[in-house]
Design a binder for these strands. Structure first.
Length: 579
RNA sequence: CGGGAUGUGGCUCAGUUUGGUAGAGCGCUGCGUUCGGGACGCAGAGAUCGAGUGUUCAAAUCACUCCAUCCCGACCA
């Protein structure tokens, strides 16, 4: 590629719309341009990086035995109605009609289509297992797209679906994908971590997310400093130390206390002069249309995913003001567990049975109660792990200290079970001639998001620092010849030589001043830069710079090919990558 | 959807308070000088001031409506 003829419009200043580094640099380096909110054009450089990521993912998928297919972006509503997700999926699903008024949507994921594709075709256990994948644009009408490629509405994704004859096989497929993901992300050059995750709306038995470790990550990971444990915050179990249950301790009778205008835990504590840990926080939720109360200690956060999973619900939301008033008889801020509407089941965090004599809301305006006993004064449906893990908590697996880090989710693997095969009636005959449901798994990788997260993880003040495996071009040959044709000719010769060696090389043969070329090479983030000037040519050397380490040295021109390969090996080694 | 902000040459922004000739820097074109870390001089091109309606002799500027974008929140296989 010759830069003099290339389309890569760079920007000197950060675009106003960009907030995070990857977005700013992707724009500045001329790799992407926004079309509209959350939807981007890929320019030549950006597309090349994207394609390189896709190529690595494809190779690892193929190597793992998956087979590539391509499904449509437009999907008929009927399939989504079969699984119930037409109603359930919500506004994220972009729906529209064709000229006949039939309902369609843009595919945010393809469980329905793939299941439809294989049902009827897979009739025998002898055809199993099968793993099919595609690399295709997805569309999700995100409530709030942001951060450029990190959370777009249209984005490139690799999604794979496995079909097995039984649970054991499905689990094998799952771990097979898990390993393939580790290989792919390692090859790309990312620092990442697989973490336990909630399987969310897609359902299923268990699931892992692959997180790229970066400050700008939208997710928080709790990981153990001593063992392998790592989990998304919403998934992380909290182990409550075993102590005696104190719910039935003898304590004074329940008593009202006036707390005029004190709604929050903080206000109540300050007003009464007590520690938040002596309060019971009562939270009212609506789960699939039914009211539910959840109790956590005053100084804790409720983890609503845990609550939802405990109840086995789908949709969970805070109760609105009117509902709270109806259930408690009081305005928001005074809910308590002792005199709630009888139809509201109460779930309490496990920690709460280890103390008593609580302060809680009074279910009356401007009133709280003291001397509350959960055993005596209320009916608790169940004590369970309901709270959010905190950094001071101990590892749920080994009991050692944990830490919180930020991560970007670039991959997610799910063991689905028979959720979709059941609703879509995808069956086969097993060894005994018995009809059985296909055991499924699904596995996603955010290809475009990887490009952004690679930049989040690897950049400096001057621009991107691409890992050599996914850089748009691995090497930039920068000619500083100007009017000195001998230098320009030699630079072009070296560039051609690199190409014949099978290296993705770019030649900066533009008429610009050296400073401009250096600045842009750093901005785009070619992992290797080769700079040829008049002096170098005279001395028979070309200068080389490792973008990652900043290290500069010289390569002899007479044994260039050999010297280059050696240097290249070193650069890859600095990335911890194998060629 | 709730809260906040912004919309002025391709880009970054000033001008709006107090209505009166549409600006700067970067980028772009031409000429010249310069040429190892985003050069300099001279001369140029380039704008329905987000859209509509209204107030006014006069609107980028005031009022109303709408649209778009960004940030915070809820949401998120």
């Amino acid at each position: 590629m010759k830069l003099s003829q290339y389309y890569a419009p760079t920007l000197k200043e950060d675009p106003a719309e960009a907030e995070v580094v990857s977005h700013k640099l992707l724009m500045r380096a001329g790799m992407i341009r926004k079309l509209t909110s959350g939807i981007y054009n890929y320019l030549p450089l950006g597309l090349r990086a994207l394609n390189k990521v896709a190529a690595i993912v494809r190779e690892e998928m193929n190597r793992a035995g998956a087979m590539e297919i391509l499904m449509p972006t437009v999907q008929p509503a009927d399939l989504w109605r079969e699984t119930g997700r037409w109603d359930y999926y919500g506004k994220e699903l972009l729906r529209f009609n064709d000229r006949h008024g039939r309902d369609y949507c843009l595919g945010p994921t393809h469980e329905e289509v793939i299941t439809d594709l294989v049902r009827g075709e897979i009739r025998s256990y002898k055809q199993l297992p099968v793993n099919l994948y595609q690399i295709q644009n997805k569309f999700r009408d995100e409530i709030r797209p942001r951060f450029g490629l990190m959370r777009g509405r249209e984005f490139l994704m690799k999604d794979a679906y496995s079909f097995d004859k039984d649970d054991e096989g499905a689990e094998k497929s799952y771990w097979n994908m898990f390993e393939a993901y580790k290989k792919a992300f390692s090859r790309i050059g990312l620092r990442f971590k697989p973490v336990q995750a909630d399987s969310g709306a897609i359902g299923g038995d268990f699931s892992h997310e692959f997180m790229v470790l970066a400050e700008t990550g939208e997710d928080t990971i709790a990981s153990c400093k001593s063992c392998d444990f790592a989990a998304n915050l919403e998934k992380a179990k909290v182990i409550t130390p075993e102590t005696t249950c104190r719910c039935d301790d003898e304590i004074p009778a329940l008593e009202d206390i006036a707390t005029p205008g004190k709604h929050t835990v903080e206000e109540v504590c300050e007003f009464l002069g007590v520690e938040p840990r002596k309060l019971v926080k009562t939270l009212l939720y609506i789960v699939d249309g039914n009211p539910v109360a959840a109790l956590v200690r005053g100084d804790r956060e409720l983890n609503d995913v845990k609550l939802r999973n405990l109840i086995g619900g789908n949709e969970i939301d805070f109760a609105d003001e009117a509902t709270v008033k109806k259930l408690t008889g009081a305005p928001v801020g005074f809910a308590g567990p002792h005199s709630l509407d009888k139809d509201v089941p109460i779930y309490a965090d496990a920690e709460l049975c280890h103390d008593t004599d609580w302060i809680a809301g009074g279910n009356k305006a401007d009133t709280h109660v003291k001397h509350l006993s959960l055993g005596r004064d209320c009916t608790i449906e169940k004590f369970a792990d309901l709270r959010m893990i905190e950094e001071t908590d101990l590892c749920p697996e080994c009991g050692q200290a944990i830490e919180f880090t930020k991560g970007i989710e670039v991959g997610h693997v799910f063991k689905l079970g028979t959720k979709y095969s059941e609703s879509m009636d995808a069956k086969f005959l097993d060894e005994n001639g018995k009809e059985k449901l296909l055991a499924m798994g699904c596995y996603g990788i955010g290809v475009s998001r990887i490009v952004a997260s690679a930049i989040e993880q690897n950049h400096d003040d001057n621009g991107c620092i691409f890992p050599p495996t996914i850089a748009p071009y691995e090497v930039a040959v920068i000619s500083l010849g100007g009017k000195d044709q001998a230098v320009n000719d030699k630079a072009e010769e070296l560039y051609n030589q690199l190409i014949s060696l099978g290296v993705d090389a770019a030649l900066d043969d533009r008429k610009d001043r050296p400073g401009v070329k250096f600045a842009e090479a750093d901005l785009v983030g070619y992992p290797m830069q080769l700079v040829l000037g008049g002096k170098g040519l005279k001395n028979g050397v070309i200068e080389c710079k490792n973008r990652k380490t900043g290290e500069k040295s010289e390569l002899p021109l007479d044994t260039f090919a050999e010297a280059f390969q050696q240097w290249r090996k070193q650069v890859w080694a600095d990335w911890n990558l194998k060629m």
